[in-house]
Design a protein around this nucleic acid. Sequence first.
RNA 1: GGCGCGGUAGCCAAGUGGUAAGGCUAAGGUCUGCAAAACCUUUAUCCGUGGGUUCGAUUCCCACCCGCGCCUCCA
Length: 465
Amino acid sequence: MALRFYNTLTQRVEDFAPAEDNTVRMYSCGPTVYDYAHIGNFRTFTFIDILRKWLRASGFRLNHVMNVTDVDDKIIRNAAAQGKNLADYTGTYTKAFLEDCALLRLERPERLVPATQHIDDMAEAIQRLGAGHHTYTSDGSVYFRISSFPGYGKLSHNDFSGNLSGARVDLDEYEKADARDFALWKAPKEGETFWDTAIGPGRPGWHIECSVMAIKYLGETLDIHVGGVDLIFPHHENEIAQSESLTGKPFSRFWLHSEFLMVEGQKMSKSLGNYYTLRDVVARGHQPEAIRYLLASVPYRRSLNFTFEGLKSAGTAIDRLRNFKLRLATDRYAEGANEQLAARTAAASQAFTASLNDDLNTAEALGAVFEYVRDANSAMDSGEFRAGNRADALEFLERFDAVFDVLRPATAGGASDADIEALIAQRTEAKKARNFARADQIREQLLEQGVVLEDTKAGVRWKRK
RNA sequence: GGCGCGGUAGCCAAGUGGUAAGGCUAAGGUCUGCAAAACCUUUAUCCGUGGGUUCGAUUCCCACCCGCGCCUCCA
């Protein structure tokens, strides 16, 4: 089955391929660096990472740009409150964001672009919009005139036509000509950071940065634009209005939006105060891989209710997969190959592909993996698993992990492998002498150091917990 | 009010016009010196409610109920 995605623009699932030369031109809305990102934010960033990895696994090359919003009202307010300049303030949270991404194994986009490094580009774009009669100025601020763009509302599927014609108000009394018009450029306020540009002093509105940076680095029509569902309106709608007014071409062929992370039945958000940062969750002793797994395991278009119980079960599920991988590497198998099992491996691998191709159905893809793990474990128990089946199995696990990326343990640390193996040798001696008390003592000792032993027919197998 | 998403076992969750994947949890069992790991068995006559279409619907249609989101900053 071909790769396909649900496109918010058309409200349909459509076959996907990049427009040109096998390279996917993708833009994603990144963080506003005014605070630590919370795990709701990371739900979307994890989805984007899964998308990246699956696109690459599907044979495409990537050119992915993500912005960093490093100027907005909250940033200005918070920086001022802390007596810091903007760059220092946003630098702190940009760095924190990148550290958090690394912890969750989120790949860096090909380009990470800060808004403040593109102010002149934005001013120039606003000028061009003005030349095309899409803007008007009021008290030094520049607004986009929505009535100048006939397609307004096509992404969010809202009909603004009645609203626009009926709701005109006097320009002198109201700063905006229509309630839906939005700021492209904000006049400087007393004591606030501003930039001197071709269109005068001020700072950019929120939406213009994405249009300008996306077009600058990716061209006039993107293959994919992604973000959370809350950005559909007004942010992405406004991006379309700006970009298409600028270029006369469709801004993005595909629009993919991820649903929310919920907590206790409500959207996790800063303003509601019901949020956890990644740091909060890790501080409670949860592995970042478990968080990644949990965020990835529910398909991106379904809202995901976050609970610590769910997080714990994600950790257990990963353990199961890791145990399987370890067993695959350490068990001894009879020569030859089991054809039936080989066929099942191939079928599972195909099912995995078909699931992810179907609009990234991660839940179904995981189903294929676990079903296979059960079959393979079962075959190992019964001796039907042969040496010739190992390579296929490992390859399938690698295909899985190239997308989900949860099998590799975070960090080693603690006792060295040699020390651990020396103790295991001592324990094996003790067991031979049927000195089980001593053997158990060593096992306990290792467990305290985070090392778990498993006695198997092929000898002692160990792993770090 | 407009637009959008969802209601499937204790929890999470997939899914199809032909009779319910998978993960976690729980109980019992096999294996083991004991563990660990693994495997097996058991847990939804039923998929929010009421109608309709159909030989047959959880899956299609209609109505209704409930939850959530966007419409203002927001992943």
